[in-house]
Amino acid sequence: MNLGGNGPAFCSGGNGTDLAIPDPGTAQSTIAPAGCSGVAARTSEVAVTIPHAYVGDLVLRLVAPDGSSYLLRDRAGGFEGVIDQVFVVNLSRESRTGTWRLRVQDTVAGATGYLDAWSLTL
């Protein structure tokens, strides 16, 4: 079993384009890491920064190029703040190649925010 992929030990990408999160609704941002091959790591990292008036409204999912979905956060937290967190995810069954998506869902109306930036290390 190849735990670290066939390419470099890790590969990464990032997206720093601000993206408004519909209230309520879903925003989606993409990253397509360049020069990546093989499979992702067991200790892949998703770093996320989201200022939001009520972070407890948010559900975050990482979606792999094949459509597999990984729940990162499900309506945790409370009032105004910032999600500034690194999530460690076992992606060892996923190919590194392709476009990865971060989906941010605001589940309740009345509080707004935006995706400031996110990065992915596979």
Rank of each mutant, 00 (worst) to 15 (best):
T30G: 07
S68L: 13
T112E: 13
P51C: 09
P51I: 06
T112S: 14
T99F: 04
P24Y: 08
D18W: 09
Y114H: 11
R61L: 11
Q85V: 12
A40P: 01
R73A: 10
M1K: 13
N6G: 15
V108N: 11
V104T: 07
G113A: 08
W118R: 01
I83Y: 02
V48T: 02
D106V: 06
N90I: 07
E94G: 04
L72M: 03
G81N: 03
L71Y: 09
G38P: 01
A40G: 04
D18F: 09
P33G: 07
D106H: 07
L91M: 03
T107P: 06
S68I: 11
S92F: 12
R61N: 12
C11H: 10
R73M: 14
L58H: 01
L62I: 02
L91A: 01
V86D: 05
G77H: 07
W100D: 00
R103A: 12
G81S: 04
L58C: 03
A117K: 10
G25W: 03
L3D: 15
P22Y: 05
A32K: 05
F87T: 01
S44I: 02
G13E: 06
H52D: 08
N6A: 12
G78H: 12
T97E: 14
Y70Q: 01
D84K: 03
N6Q: 15
A20F: 08
G78F: 10
P22Q: 05
V48S: 01
L122W: 03
A32V: 07
T99G: 05
G35N: 10
V59W: 04
R101E: 07
P51E: 06
L102M: 06
P51H: 07
A32C: 10
L115S: 05
I50N: 02
D18E: 15
Y70L: 02
Q28M: 12
L102C: 04
G14H: 09
P24M: 13
G67M: 08
V89A: 00
T99N: 04
D74E: 15
G81W: 02
C11W: 10
A111L: 14
T121P: 05
N90R: 06
A41T: 15
